[in-house]
Design a protein around this nucleic acid. Sequence first.
DNA 1: CAATAATGATTCACAATATGAATGATTCAA
DNA 2: TTGAATCATTCATATTGTGAATCATTATTG
Lengths: 150, 150
Amino acid sequence: MSKQSPAELTGTLAFQIGVLGTTITDLFAARIAPLGLKPKHAGLLALLANQGARSQAEAAEAMGVAPSLLVGLADRLQDLGALTRERDPGDRRRQVLALTADGTALLKSCNRIAEAIDTDLTADLDPADAAALRRALAAMTGFEPRRVLS
Amino acid sequence: MSKQSPAELTGTLAFQIGVLGTTITDLFAARIAPLGLKPKHAGLLALLANQGARSQAEAAEAMGVAPSLLVGLADRLQDLGALTRERDPGDRRRQVLALTADGTALLKSCNRIAEAIDTDLTADLDPADAAALRRALAAMTGFEPRRVLS
DNA sequence: CAATAATGATTCACAATATGAATGATTCAA
DNA sequence: TTGAATCATTCATATTGTGAATCATTATTG
């Protein structure tokens, strides 16, 4: 006889990645909380670091969130001294966000925390499988809409 | 020279799985919405199907949510005729949830939807990498707390 | 056995998160 | 130059989740 119960739903990649993603994000959130950050703050820092200064509208678009949400994220990071927020002289409607040295340092801390989680995640994982996982993620991350860590 | 920018934060598994998980869960949520379900409803159906009837406290524990949240989930599924909710005769404090035939059918629909997402996800993925991905997920899914799809 | 503690389900008040509509400033197009 | 579009911001609102309080029931224990 074949297998009786094929682990309905929970056997799918969609379900497993969904659950694991939430678990990891919650853990990441707990570990960056002492820095005064939430995952979306870290996502914004990373965006600015990797893609350079951006207006709030551009950042919101890139992160897949409403522009109104970005106001609060930028407020917070500005309070922490992690970014500057200046009117674009060429178009004074735009608020241009740019990382400060403090922001870069903060991002590095987030990065270290994420890497520590990676270490735990891949602890009992065949190195070849870990490499394949990275390839698979790269292939899947071009998937449909973009949205940054919540 | 070595690579200048190592994709700060966004290069980590933690970040990538977090983002992908949210993206996938949002997509899954959109596709099961016509069934009148949200991801947590589907998670509860799957729990009952895969592990048998459970009290609400047990289900909440297994899903990693507050018992008070489970009340509403069970209400909804009961309204849809997807589960029965009966006092345990042996301990009349416990409400025991059990799948109905309609609930099983509903879960099968969710399963099909998740499988369709899997198909898209793995479309341009080396089959060997897809297999490795499954192994990696299996290894990582024993990770810390449990929480079901949100 | 009686009194007290613990457990399960439920309701409720509340916090956190996100959205979209409205507003005001500015820029673009006709 | 007038009207439409864009950007940032605020505000009202929806959604989601939690924990405290309550009530019924069951366990404990003096």
